[in-house]
Design a protein around this nucleic acid. Sequence first.
DNA 1: ATGGATGCAAAGCCTTTGCAAGCTT
DNA 2: AAGCTTGCAAAGGCTTTGCATCCAT
Lengths: 144, 144
Amino acid sequence: MKEFLKTKGFKMTPQRELIFRSFFEMGKHVSVEELYDKVHQKDRSIGYSTVWRNLKVICKVGLAEEVNLGDGVTRYDRVTREPHGHLFCQNCKRLIEFDIHAVLPYLVETGEEKNFRADSFKIEITGLCEDCQAMENKKNERLH
Amino acid sequence: MKEFLKTKGFKMTPQRELIFRSFFEMGKHVSVEELYDKVHQKDRSIGYSTVWRNLKVICKVGLAEEVNLGDGVTRYDRVTREPHGHLFCQNCKRLIEFDIHAVLPYLVETGEEKNFRADSFKIEITGLCEDCQAMENKKNERLH
DNA sequence: ATGGATGCAAAGCCTTTGCAAGCTT
DNA sequence: AAGCTTGCAAAGGCTTTGCATCCAT
């Protein structure tokens, strides 16, 4: 990893290593704050902006990309995994993934038709997850 | 429209009418600021927050929905039009639409499989539009 | 008269950046 | 030494809200 970063013009530091490790352990859909909390527990001296900047670095070297669900918080998602879409529960903010191999060809074709140079594809379904639907139903029952 | 709003618990006012009209004239992918600029030209007394709140109202009554491309600006998009995806140029911020009828069934099915109650579907391709690619090429030529 | 609507200013919230000091190579 | 990194604090930039006032019903 150290070598890999060097080829991209970045250096390795203890902080960076801890941040990278933590991010890849958490794996997916991590917000700056979540990662900061986790990292900060292990090393109280690491600042918020360092975490933030390193998340950007992870993106710059192509290991993750930003995900924006419109709830005001940017999340970071590993890109080494298979292409996938997101089911985003607006209540509990949970993110469920699903495979999008079936539709990717269509999207690629669409971009080509319009002479658009596509960098990334995003498919998101927002709504209510199974659990939150159940909760909602219980709440309604109580009201009657 | 006045009647329609009343059924939703909202009242009609001169400001609201101007804002609604302007929004529907602009039609698609409008940011608060863009709409404010347009509205403010016609009536200098209308404040930014009034425009903002009315955009929210338009969403609440189901006539538009928020679009978040991850550039820090929330845009509002009419929902009466056909379901569509977005090609978002990261350089000029232009939004090009494309039909997504072909893939919607797959997405609906995906949501059902996971017992997810889907409220909305979002498909976004980010990259560089034709024009900006041309500009980029010219710039590169000049450098050589 | 009511309760929603408006304007202004101020607060919120994340995201970014400026800087001086500290490390990596 | 040269340049990337880090921490802290402060600045940004857009979104929201508090409040007194106004207006539609």
